[in-house]
């Protein structure tokens, strides 16, 4: 049976993780490669690296990251952040990443999704959608939530699938950072129109939050960052608890 995936997300800038970590025994907690290996050893099913480097050498730093991670990691990983062209994606995928995630660049130029799917296949293209709730639905936010595009999020998710997106990484800007639970109304609205795998992101704070959305099959995978980085929750405990509730997971 296909397992629900648990995905830690690492923010990386200039080749260093930027959020605090409290793993015991890491020689260098800021090294994304060592951190990634630790997560893999703990039973993470997949990793997402979000490169937030803000320099013109971005493509080189992100490619270097993919090369280093790929040598060590024996589970799939996605790299996002600043992928704006087929050339950007090619350098990251050829370096060993399994998937690229696009967000703001796709909103600015939706043809990018089609071009990436054509060049690399849908399976390698994750479209990251930051959704912000309103009284009458959700709109797409970009640039880390600072910009509300006003686009309807559900229509956007339908469009990127038509353009060849192979997976949707759906982050609730309302739930993100609250640790009060995933955004269930958003997931319930998106899931029926999603014919590719869906990753739930934003709001995870407890094991019960993961269990709630995964048991209800509102997502194929659940992503979290701070919760794992700060040691609030460790993956073996999370997976054991989900398995005890008969949610299909890959044992650690």
């Amino acid at each position: 049976m296909l397992a629900k995936r648990i995905i830690p997300c690492l923010d990386v800038s200039d080749g260093r993780t930027v959020k605090g970590v409290n793993f015991v025994g890491l020689r260098d907690a800021g090294d994304p490669v060592e951190l990634a290996a630790q997560y893999a050893a703990e039973g993470a099913d997949e990793l997402v690296f979000l490169d937030i480097t803000a320099t013109v050498e971005k493509r080189q730093t992100v490619t270097a990251l993919a090369l280093r991670v790929g040598r060590v990691l024996d589970i799939p990983f996605t790299i996002g952040g600043g992928i704006g062209s087929v050339g950007d994606a090619a350098s990251v995928l050829q370096a060993g990443a399994d998937k690229v995630a696009v967000n703001s660049a796709a909103v600015a130029r939706p043809e990018l999704v089609s071009e990436l799917a054509e060049a690399f296949g849908s399976q390698a293209i994750v479209v990251s959608v930051d959704a912000k709730g309103h009284a009458d639905g959700w709109t797409v936010a970009t640039h880390g939530g600072r910009t509300d595009t006003g686009f309807d999020a559900l229509a956007w998710i339908a469009e990127v699938q038509d353009r060849g997106a192979g997976e949707i990484l759906l982050t609730s800007m309302d739930a993100d950072g609250t640790q009060a639970g995933f955004d269930r109304p958003l997931l319930e609205a998106v899931r029926p129109l999603c014919c590719v795998p869906l990753i739930a992101s934003g709001g995870a704070g407890t094991i019960a939050h993961f269990a709630e959305v995964l048991a209800a099959d509102l997502a194929d995978a659940a992503l979290a960052a701070s919760l794992f980085h700060y040691g609030t929750l460790c993956i073996p405990d999370l997976k054991a608890a989900l398995a005890a509730q008969a949610i299909p997971i890959r044992p650690c």
Binding site: L2, R5, G166, E167, P197, D220, A221
Partner: peptide, 14 residues
């Protein structure tokens, strides 16, 4: 077959 579960089949299966 389209129309049921998500395609591609992506993830860890037994």
């Amino acid at each position: 077959p389209d129309g049921g579960v998500p395609i591609p089949h992506m993830g860890w299966n037994t």
